[in-house]
Measured scan of single mutants.
Amino acid sequence: STAGKIFRAMYDYMAADADEVSFKDGDAIINVQAIDEGWMYGTVQRTGRTGMLPANYVEAI
């Protein structure tokens, strides 16, 4: 389960779609929910934006 875990971005990511979020390497991602194998839903702490993000760009900390 991803509940209550904080994730950290390992790479920069530029949102490719309106429902995705952009983030930079080192950003903390909070309130994360796993959607499926490849995608998560969460909030980028630095920007306050919430949306979909690729699971392979982040790691649990």
Rank of each mutant, 00 (worst) to 15 (best):
I30C: 08
I6D: 08
I35Y: 05
A16D: 08
A55D: 03
E20S: 10
I29E: 01
E37S: 12
A16V: 12
G48P: 00
A28F: 15
V58Y: 04
G38Q: 15
D19L: 10
D36A: 10
A34T: 14
G48A: 08
Y11T: 13
A18L: 10
I29T: 03
E37K: 09
D25N: 14
E59Y: 00
E59V: 07
A3S: 14
G42V: 01
A9V: 02
V21L: 06
A9L: 00
R46D: 01
F7D: 07
F7Y: 15
A18Y: 10
E37F: 04
G4T: 08
I61F: 10
E59T: 10
V44M: 00
N31E: 08
I6W: 06
Q45P: 06
M40V: 12
M52W: 11
M40L: 13
T50W: 06
G51E: 00
L53I: 15
D25K: 15
A60N: 06
M40W: 09
T50V: 11
G42H: 00
D27W: 00
A34Y: 14
I29V: 04
L53S: 02
G38D: 14
F7P: 01
D36K: 14
T50R: 12
W39E: 08
G48L: 02
G38H: 15
Y13M: 01
D27C: 02
R46P: 03
Y57V: 05
T43I: 02
R46K: 08
K24P: 03
R46I: 02
Y13L: 02
A15M: 02
L53K: 02
V32P: 05
K24L: 11
Y57C: 11
M52L: 15
A18E: 14
Y41P: 05
P54E: 01
N56R: 14
A16T: 13
K24Y: 10
T47V: 04
R46M: 00
Y57M: 14
A15I: 00
I61Y: 10
E37C: 09
A18N: 12
A15T: 01
G4P: 10
G48V: 02
G4Q: 09
A28M: 15
A3L: 05
I35M: 14
K5G: 13
T50F: 03
F23S: 08
A16R: 15
A9M: 00
A28S: 11
K5E: 13
F23M: 08
S22L: 01
S22Y: 12
A34P: 12
G51R: 01
G51V: 03
D36L: 07
T47S: 06
Q45F: 05
G26S: 01
V58A: 04
T43E: 03
E37M: 07
G4V: 08
W39Y: 06
D25C: 15
N31A: 07
D19Y: 09
T2I: 10
Y41T: 09
V44D: 03
D25P: 10
G51F: 00
K24R: 12
V21G: 04
T50I: 05
D36W: 04
V32Y: 02
Y57W: 07
A18T: 15
F7T: 06
I30R: 04
L53M: 11
I30T: 11
M14R: 12
S22K: 05
G42E: 02
M52V: 09
A16G: 09
T50H: 11
V32M: 05
R46A: 04
A3Q: 15
D36P: 06
A15K: 00
T47W: 00
A60V: 13
V44E: 05
I6H: 12
I61N: 09
G51I: 00
I29R: 01
G48Y: 03
S22A: 05
M14P: 03
A28C: 13
D25E: 15
K24G: 02
I35R: 12
I6E: 12
G42A: 03
V44C: 04
I30W: 03
T43R: 04
G4F: 07
F7V: 06
N31Y: 02
R46S: 10
Q33S: 14
T50N: 05
K24I: 08
Y11P: 00
A16K: 15
A3G: 13
G26F: 02
D19E: 03
S22R: 03
Q45C: 12
A34S: 13
T50D: 04
D12A: 11
A15W: 07
M40H: 11
Y13T: 04
G51Q: 01
Y57D: 00
L53F: 09
K24C: 15
S22P: 04
A3C: 09
L53V: 15
D12E: 07
T43A: 00
I35F: 09
L53W: 01
A34E: 15
V21T: 06
F23C: 06
G4H: 07
A60Y: 06
S22G: 06
G4E: 10
A3R: 11
G48H: 10
Y13K: 04
A55Q: 02
S1Y: 15
D27M: 00
R46T: 02
T43K: 06
A16H: 10
A34K: 13
N56K: 12
K5Q: 12
Y57L: 13
W39L: 08
E20Y: 03
D17G: 14
S22W: 01
T50S: 15
M40E: 01
I30A: 09
A55E: 06
D36N: 12
Y11K: 15
G42N: 00
Y11N: 15
A18S: 14
V58Q: 02
Q33I: 15
G38W: 09
A55L: 07
D25Y: 10
D25S: 15
G26M: 02
G26D: 05
A55P: 04
E59F: 00
M10N: 09
I61L: 13
E20I: 04
D12P: 08
W39P: 05
D36M: 06
G26A: 05
A9C: 08
E20W: 07
D36Q: 10
G51D: 02
A9K: 08
Q33P: 01
D25F: 07
D17W: 00
G38P: 06
G38A: 14
N31M: 08
R49P: 02
A34W: 11
D19T: 13
D25A: 15
V21R: 02
G42M: 00
Y41I: 11
D12M: 01
Q45K: 12
A9T: 05
R49N: 11
D25M: 15
Q33E: 13
Y57Q: 07
M10C: 04
V58E: 05
V32R: 08
N31F: 07
F7S: 08
M14S: 14
T47P: 03
F7A: 08
S1T: 07
P54Q: 01
D19N: 10
T47I: 01
D12K: 03
M14F: 15
Q45G: 09
A15S: 04
E37D: 09
G48K: 06
E59P: 03
M14N: 15
E20C: 08
A16L: 13
V32I: 06
Y11F: 07
N56F: 02
E59Q: 09
Q33R: 13
N31C: 10
A55M: 04
D19R: 13
I35W: 09
M52Q: 08
M52A: 08
K5C: 11
V58K: 00
I6Y: 04
T47R: 00
G42Q: 08
D17N: 12
M52E: 04
I6N: 08
D25Q: 15
T50E: 10
I61R: 11
A55K: 01
R49C: 10
F7Q: 03
F7H: 04
G4W: 01
G42K: 03
